[in-house]
Design a protein around this nucleic acid. Structure first.
Lengths: 259, 259
DNA sequence: ACAATAGTGTCTGTTAGACATTATCCC
DNA sequence: GGGATAATGTCTAACAGACACTATTGT
């Protein structure tokens, strides 16, 4: 959840005589909107761009950073893969539209969702003018596995490091997102959103290694993470294979501590 | 300039038989748009939000961080101050719309401009659904002074630290922008956009102090800045008042060096 | 010489990165 | 005891922050 959305209220407390009905107000509003912005242009006289929300869903699968793409079935970019998205409905927030998209494609709820950037160059979609607000979501690998089987054949997970040719400006969007993710990894606790509730330090280190795309020193990594107190020892251990079991930790959100 | 815009192409190279005229293609596009997105909803059947671009223009004036606001003349929020903005035209990019806004309000060009965030809660504007892409601009104080006199009476510069009651969710937008600006100050060379070409180290320090809203140690500040090699000594000196003159520096963009 | 701001260096505590060995489990 | 991964500490170089005095100008 973008920290921002709490501080920005919806500003719905309009100033005006309280006796007015909603209808009268609405009608007058349109007239005044046109008037107030007259030095720009008449709002009703011009076409409006379409507004869509695209959601880049990212998860760790097969020791890799993967994203969900859908295959296009018609012009333009027919047969190419694209980031899922859809139109914003008149009375849902941008974030609500993103959550709806997320729900439709993966069935998951309550995941980390952050607004990335808004792309609106004329010509980025040859059909019509489309302004798209892009969000990215981080899905915890464990909950996701359950639904992996339900994927249709024109929906697929791809490694961000080996992507097919993408439709529109979507490759650029992914580059941008990866950049943002890498940066935030260093100074926020964003990484925990890609792990299940309980995890080992090795698993956490793997998250960093996969996203930063480089090896990290085990001792320095553990030292740094543990010194921030964002981890809580659950007391449990995770045994797999024939070797010493690893402690299981849990993210401590009390310590809203930045790394 | 947002570094992003270079990497994201406009994706204008549509795939389709080259013999098609633009008109045929456009007509088919609309049909296919509706079909392709059918599981969302029919694009032509629903209203579209308005898309606006708001531009938060910031500058250092009177040893203070100030922003440009305009006074609203009609409902809603009549008489309150607001961030200037306007509708996006069908064939201009979001950034172009922001530049147009900037030009209209201040007459300046070639300033630092960065997309901040997109606000689109239903109800944030009681007239109609408005999705607004907010940019912020940093204006160098010197060039701005020239045009300061041309301001109309319902346009004004305000200290970000003493703002009047603002229309819509604009106070929240400003909080968000100030946050972003403060963060970027620490790890980018964004501050130089608020100064004229030549400036003294003391002036640069003032930029940081005003924006971060706290005093900095002179010696540590100079040590840190000079160690990054982003400054070039012009050889000139700036004399004002009855004391030792200060060296004038120039920003060295070669050293795209992060702080 | 005085008023006013420019300009400079040292010390200290913290952090980031390089690096190798011991511990615990299953078989 | 062998195979496999978990867990741990030290040293060093770089950086951040506290702190006070000298330099240069105009009057």
């Amino acid at each position: 959840m973008e920290e921002h959305s709490e501080t920005i209220g919806s500003g719905n407390n309009g100033i005006g005589s309280l006796e007015e009905t909603q209808e009268i107000r609405q009608r007058r509003a349109l007239a005044e909107l046109a008037e107030a912005e007259a030095h720009h242009y008449d709002v009703n006289k011009y076409e409006r761009p379409s507004v869509t929300v695209d959601v880049l869903m990212m998860s760790l699968r097969q020791r890799d950073l993967q994203i969900l793409l859908i295959k296009r079935r018609s012009w333009p970019y027919e047969g190419m893969w694209a980031i899922p998205g859809g139109f914003v409905m008149m009375n849902e927030s941008l974030e609500a539209a993103a959550k709806r998209e997320l729900q439709e494609e993966t069935g998951v709820q309550d995941v980390y969702l952050e607004q990335l950037y808004t792309f609106g160059d004329p010509g980025r979609d040859p059909r019509t003018r489309v302004v798209t607000v892009v969000y990215f979501a981080l899905l915890d690998s464990e909950r996701l596995q359950v639904r992996a089987a339900s994927d249709a054949t024109d929906v697929g997970w791809f490694s961000v490091y080996e992507l097919p040719q993408l439709a529109f400006d979507h490759q650029g969007i992914i580059d941008y997102a990866l950049n943002r993710l890498r940066n935030k990894l260093e100074y926020t606790t964003i990484a925990f959103n890609l792990l299940p509730d309980h995890f080992t330090l090795r698993e956490l280190q793997s998250v960093y290694e996969i996203i930063l795309h480089k090896r990290l020193d085990k001792r320095n990594f553990r030292k740094k993470i543990l010194s921030t107190n964002v981890l809580e020892d659950t007391g449990e251990k995770k045994m797999e294979g024939t070797h010493r079991p690893a402690r299981l930790y849990r993210f401590n959100p009390e310590a809203e501590h930045k790394l």
